[in-house]
Design a binder for these strands. Sequence first.
DNA 1: TTCTGTGAAATAGTTCACAGCG
DNA 2: CGCTGTGAACTATTTCACAGAA
Lengths: 239, 239
Amino acid sequence: MAPPDEQLPPKAATERVSAATVGRLPEYLRALMELAANDEASVSSDGLSVLTNVNSATVRRDLATLDITGTRGLGYDVKYVVHEISLVLGLSQEWAVVIVGAGNLGRALANYQGFASRGFPVRAIVDIDPSLVGTTMGDQVVSHLDDLETIVDGKDVSVAVIATPAANAQAVADRLVDAGLSSILNFTATPVVVPAHVQVRQVDLATELQILSFYHQRTSAAVGGTGVPLVDRSTGSGT
Amino acid sequence: MAPPDEQLPPKAATERVSAATVGRLPEYLRALMELAANDEASVSSDGLSVLTNVNSATVRRDLATLDITGTRGLGYDVKYVVHEISLVLGLSQEWAVVIVGAGNLGRALANYQGFASRGFPVRAIVDIDPSLVGTTMGDQVVSHLDDLETIVDGKDVSVAVIATPAANAQAVADRLVDAGLSSILNFTATPVVVPAHVQVRQVDLATELQILSFYHQRTSAAVGGTGVPLVDRSTGSGT
DNA sequence: TTCTGTGAAATAGTTCACAGCG
DNA sequence: CGCTGTGAACTATTTCACAGAA
């Protein structure tokens, strides 16, 4: 263990976690849950490295940052790490989700089981279009956007997903903030501006395709010509 | 156009572009198209900085990396930069997309207009489930996965989207590669392994929520309590 | 021996600050 | 002037490499 220092405040490890590390936590978690499902009791940083494609030193440093310790000579206790990472990510409880926008994308997301199965049950869907309000979607009845506040309070919703046309994104975000929500996942291409205490994540599906397109081009352009070039899987077999 | 140089090594600017820069290009593009739609002829790096929330020095450096030049005292020519970035991202042509998996997510994506409108028309949807094959979805009839190769060749498809259950992701990816595709967008939580010449992008929607959850927690934990916001609803007396 | 935990080196990416062009 | 283009400083992140615990 690291030499403890009695003078320092307890541990707000969370404070020191870099964005890069946070981005890897869900990956670790996925790999670890797979291991757990396979009844693996422990795993080395090398093992996790292979499963996640993250350098093993990075794995160790990430975990150490979270004060997650392993056993020298053995590795990390799978269940323990799952528990700790879940805690750090705030996954020890469910977070109810409201989807705003019952158009194609909203409908898609409402039916998508992947949210609920990962601890984010969709508890409401809202839209402004009166012809959609009252229709059933997934296992929810579409409500009117105006009822947002009631829904948020009544169903303990804490996360909103924006799936409206891009032009409405900002207006929707404003209403979400007014309704007291402070976590927003925006699937619109338009970034929204929110107060500092509100978290937003921008995910644009077409952007992903554009980036893919870039790398596709670059790869095609890089003609080596010698049969099968470059097999790059960074598993550091160093010295 | 940049001055062609017959003597120097071909020096494609593309080679030197960092991943960080690539990630910002779609953002620049979006902002620039907005400007273009507004008949703005030119924009300064400061202007773009405001629109994209990227430091202006970073904007200038990114563009300079792509050999995109501006005019001192004036700024960048909007149309010219749109053209150049589109070129770099490979967006001067359309890329036809095949969606694999006609379940909830696949259906959602098939109906989503955001792909086509950004230059990625969905030209086919395939599944293995015989009861889905032949049904209509979006403006496509669902085909069988076995016909993939024919479809890819016949419709000039170059990008695949995996929207199957996670357990099938790797098998699907293998078939996609066999069919000659080299750009894959994987919406499954399971990462897939592919040959080096194939580009994959992993986008897991639940992961986005997990990351959001982390920042939500961190923000709530950092209670300053001075006056304004702070939603108390989410305080952990959970389900 | 195996594998963690971590200084220290190496890389990557961002931002400042300013010379100099239009 | 205003604004680009870029050396140089700075900050962040990754990776090496190894002492030492189990």
